[in-house]
Simulated assay, not measured.
Amino acid sequence: MSGPLPVFTHLLHLTDHRATFEHALLTEPRREHGYCVDDMARVLIVATREPGAAGPVNGLAGKALTFLNDAQSYDGRCRNRMDSAGRWQDLPSTEDHWGRMVWALGTAAAHSEVGLVRRLATVQFERAAQTRSPHPRARAFAAIGAAELLSVAPGHTAARELLTGYVATLPDTAPDPEWPWPEPRLEYANAVLAEAMIAAGVALDDAALLDRGLDLLDWLLDLETRDGHLSPTPVTGRGPSDLGPGFDQQPIEVASLADACARAAAADARPAWLEGLRMAAGWFGGDNDLGLPMWDSGTGGGYDGLHADRVNLNQGAESTLAALSTMQQARRYSPVRQ
């Protein structure tokens, strides 16, 4: 499998001295909407897992770490939204942005090629790991971060306690073999629920949990494949009786599948995971329900959504980071390193 390389030009264009702007009007940042932890966590992930990153990409990691540190409270909770003047707009909580922050900090601690980034990310991780979230996706994001840190520091107490606590919250296996998903409907970033099980199964040497995560991802990948290409769950969700394709489709769904397939491929030799990665990269390249490209491969800018009749050509941070993340994962498993 080979494909286009991640290109950081547009992401850098969306970023000022403080952070990456959340939204864009076509290619131009919409400064009036400010910044968010959700996106800066994603920035930290893609920046620190980019091998041999040039100075500007390393600079993104530094900005992300500073932003996340400023967002955190001493008790581990964090704010999410900051306006363009640098003022926080909300109170600390443990919503999804907290989980994404923990995921990013664990990833940076495990994969950054810069020693200072690894050390600072570990300190911030330990602060964030003091608390827990009641929200399933936030817990799953955080579990992946804990598993990443344990991959390089198996004795890390806070990471292990966070991960074992996550496993204890998992619901029993769904009783309906036709709908094994742990929720009555697919919602958003769905593959993260399977990926967290896989990550925890590997980190805790729990073969049953690993197999459960793999089986769940296999079911999801099959459900979201249509005529040989990905047709991901739309923003309205998907239930057992819903027929595809559904719209609007969001790039973050595809990136979530790519992340989960990459983690599955590292733990299991089934060819389905590499095929899933190929389809995820292909979705951005135009192998989707409309046959239209979902990113600008020259700048790395990702388009904000696939509607029933057109592409949303705005290139916001979430969509751009989803494209970059997907291309990183596809490159990781390319037989010819580019």
Rank of each mutant, 00 (worst) to 15 (best):
T27W: 10
R30D: 10
R31F: 12
E32D: 15
Y35V: 10
Y35E: 08
V37L: 11
D38T: 02
D38S: 06
R42Y: 10
R42L: 14
V43H: 05
L44A: 09
I45A: 11
V46C: 14
V46W: 03
T48M: 04
T48Y: 00
E50R: 05
G52L: 10
G52I: 11
G52R: 06
G52F: 08
G52S: 11
A53I: 13
A54W: 08
V57A: 12
V57S: 10
G59E: 15
L60M: 11
L60C: 12
K63Y: 08
A64N: 07
T66P: 04
F67N: 05
D70N: 12
A71E: 02
A71Y: 04
A71P: 03
D75K: 10
G76H: 02
R77M: 03
R77F: 01
C78N: 09
C78G: 08
N80C: 05
R81S: 14
S84G: 11
S84P: 11
G86V: 14
R87Q: 13
W88H: 10
Q89E: 15
D90C: 00
L91H: 11
S93A: 15
T94A: 05
E95T: 13
E95V: 11
E95L: 10
E95Y: 07
D96P: 08
D96C: 09
M101P: 00
M101Q: 01
A104G: 08
A104N: 06
A104P: 04
G106E: 01
T107P: 05
A108S: 09
A109C: 06
H111E: 15
V114I: 15
G115R: 11
G115K: 06
G115S: 15
L116F: 10
L116Q: 12
V117G: 00
R118P: 07
L120E: 07
L120T: 09
A121P: 02
A121H: 00
A121Q: 03
T122A: 09
E126T: 08
Q130W: 07
Q130H: 09
T131E: 03
P136G: 08
A140F: 06
F141L: 02
A142I: 09
A143G: 07
A143K: 00
G145H: 00
G145M: 06
A146K: 03
S151H: 07
S151E: 01
A153W: 05
A153L: 13
A153Q: 14
